[in-house]
Each structure stands twice: as C-alpha cells, then as structure tokens.
Amino acid sequence: MRKLYRNILTCSLLALVGCSSAPVEEPLEVNIKPLGERQAAPKFELKDVNGAVVTPAEYKGKVLLLNFWATWCVPCKAEIPWFQEFEKQFKDQGFSVLGVSLDEEGWDVVKPYIEERKISYRMVIGSEETSTMYGGIDSLPTTFIIDREGKIAAIHTGLVSKASYKKEIEDLLEGSKSAGTNTDGGDSQFAFFRAPSPRAE
C-alpha cells in the first residue's frame, strides 16, 4: 500500500514527516476554513468490519471527523478516547467519527486492536488510493473535519489538542462560520534517516 512512499524514500534516503506544530497541551488551534474555501470531501467506498460499504455521502447532513490512523502510531492511540467521547457527546447533534486505518495488514491487525480497546466508532481500512484522494497522507494521524454539506472544513496533520478538536466540532455543529488563520503543514518538519557507508572492523 505504501510502495510509492517507500520508493521515494529509498532512492533519496530521505524519510519525510509532515507534522503540525501544536502539541497536546497547547492552547486552542481552531482552523476552520471559511465556507467559500471548503472543498468537497473526496468520495470513496470502503468496507467496515462487518463488510458493509461506507461512503462519505452517508454522512451528509452530519459533521464527520475522518481520522486516518494506524495501529503502530502511538499519537493516533492518544486520540482514540477523545474521538469516542466526542461521538458519544455530540451524536444527537449530528456528529460521527469514521476511522480509516492505513495498516498494510488490514483487518488482521485492526480488528483485534479495536476489540481490545473497545473502540466504538466506525472503522474502515483505507488504501493508497484513498490516501491519494485525500492529498497523499504521508504521516499519521491526519484528520479531516467535514461539515454538514460534505465539505472539508479543517485538516490536521499530526496531533493537536483535544480542546481544539472539540471547539471545531462545536463550531461546525452550531453552524459557526469562523475562519481560522492558522494552517497545519505550512511549517512542516522533515526528518531523514540515512545509513552512511558501513565500515568493517
């Protein structure tokens, strides 16, 4: 699934990580785009753990938190209880969470993981195609908050605070048209991990 990234990294010996600059404890970082700047969430058809087809269109009329994650991603793990809490708290106001796992091993690793942690929100297994449709997910977690019209209202690459998510969800549920000025990814940091020439001893 991640062949594209691997090839690029192998050739250049570069491993790139895009990440936001907002740590968990920091103040609110509300990045809701103005209505006119929002684009429609790309369509996909992915299956949930029961084999039912899931599409973003199902969520039209609701605010959807679309979270790309993986079982090996520790920051992703930190967000899971928040998202469960949000879905429980805002469900009646028209809010849902959809997790898109990008684990290469698919349900073999994801199913036990969600069972063990009793993850209550809906989950699907994403593909490289899904990732590409959403701009090429190159680090996790990456989260899209989609408004009731099915348009992307906010994007977060990396971990942001629970309070920031909550504020964005509340604003969208209330129909707030607030426009944040901060954007994630503009100040991305890049990591590289390289193996210089080995030496024998």
């Binding site: 993986a70 680090s139 996790l140 390289r194 080995p198």
Partner: peptide, 22 residues
C-alpha cells in the same frame, strides 16, 4: 534492508525500508 518506523512529538511516518549495499 533497514526497516524502521519513525515519529516525532506530533506524528509518525509510515514504516520504511532502507536498502543497504556493502
């Protein structure tokens, strides 16, 4: 092949294979 998975304080990159030739 060096297989690794890197993160910083905010996010993680995908598992990566780095080819090595000696």
């Amino acid at each position: 092949v060096v297989r690794y998975q890197a993160c910083n304080d905010n996010g993680c990159q995908f598992p990566t294979n780095l080819n090595v030739v000696i």
